[in-house]
């Protein structure tokens, strides 16, 4: 028996919105410690990793490790039937080929039940090595979203460069070019508005803006985002989910031909 109740059901809606343009099917890998999802886009350019600890659910019950394969289209249709303040309970019995979703309004007056057929998804699991990054930059998520959107007006690629002077985003195309520099904040009222730059080594990488713009669909999940960069390595973009989980996107860099 697997059962997990998310008090803030809107978090599930936001998670699905954040990944539905990148992947079509996902496996929920459920264990006693929580739920994880790993999925790659069809072009093998980016990877989504979702980790949700069991402490984010009340109750959480997972008697035996179970993998639940779901089509995101069906999942998206179902969760859209939940109100933002509903709780969402996910239930699956061993040996059945369905997953159940129960939505409850905060006052308990309205409950809705939906069932989706499980799918057998052949997913390739990747080993993600522990990486010591050259630079780790934490910034407001809306700021990162804005930069990616603005830069994609100029070109298909963005160059991200971290130096002791800060982080620079640049793009160029037929029309012209642009550069945006961010420096570490000194005095900020709210922690979530802070720009924090950890620099071990200067780093300079190029990425496809198309994918970064997909990743920024996760902006409603968190006020902050962390970019972890290492020379000749994939970028890791992390959106925390409350204090119990995270959504990470890995993107392979563009390399010189």
């Amino acid at each position: 028996m697997f059962e997990a109740r998310l008090i803030q059901g809107s978090v599930l809606k936001k998670m699905i919105d954040a990944i539905k343009d990148i992947v079509t099917d996902i496996n929920l890998d459920c264990s006693s410690t929580g739920i994880s999802v790993q999925a790659m886009d069809s072009g093998h350019v980016c990877l989504v990793l979702i980790e949700l600890g069991s402490d984010g659910f009340e109750p959480y019950r997972c008697d035996r490790n179970i993998t639940l394969g779901l089509g995101l289209k069906a999942l998206s249709v179902v969760v859209r039937c939940a109100n933002n303040d509903d709780s969402i309970t996910i239930k699956a019995q061993e040996g059945t080929d369905n997953i159940n979703f129960v939505f409850e309004s905060p006052n308990g007056e309205k409950t809705s039940q939906f069932e989706i057929k499980l799918m057998d998804i052949d997913s390739e699991h990747l080993g993600i090595p522990d990486t010591e990054y050259d630079s780790v930059v934490k910034m407001p998520s809306h700021e990162f979203q804005r930069i990616c959107r603005d830069m994609s007006q100029l070109g298909d690629s963005i160059v991200v460069a971290c130096t002791k002077d800060g982080i620079q985003f640049s793009a160029s195309g037929d029309m012209g070019s642009g550069k945006i520099n961010l420096r570490q904040s000194s005095l900020v009222d709210k922690e979530e508005d802070q720009i924090n730059i950890e620099l071990n080594d200067p780093v300079h990488l190029t990425f496809a803006l198309r994918y970064l713009n997909y990743f920024t669909k996760a902006t409603p999940l968190s006020p902050t985002v962390t970019l972890s960069l290492k020379a000749e390595s994939p970028l890791c973009v992390t959106y925390p989910i409350g204090d119990f989980g995270s959504m990470k996107f890995f993107l392979a860099p563009k390399i010189d031909d």
Binding site: M40, V45, C46, L126, T206, A252, K254, I255, D257
Partner: peptide, 14 residues
């Protein structure tokens, strides 16, 4: 112009 590299160049299949 730079070309898009594959993620499998960096991460191994388990």
């Amino acid at each position: 112009t730079p070309i898009q590299n594959d993620l499998l160049e960096y991460f191994s299949l388990l």
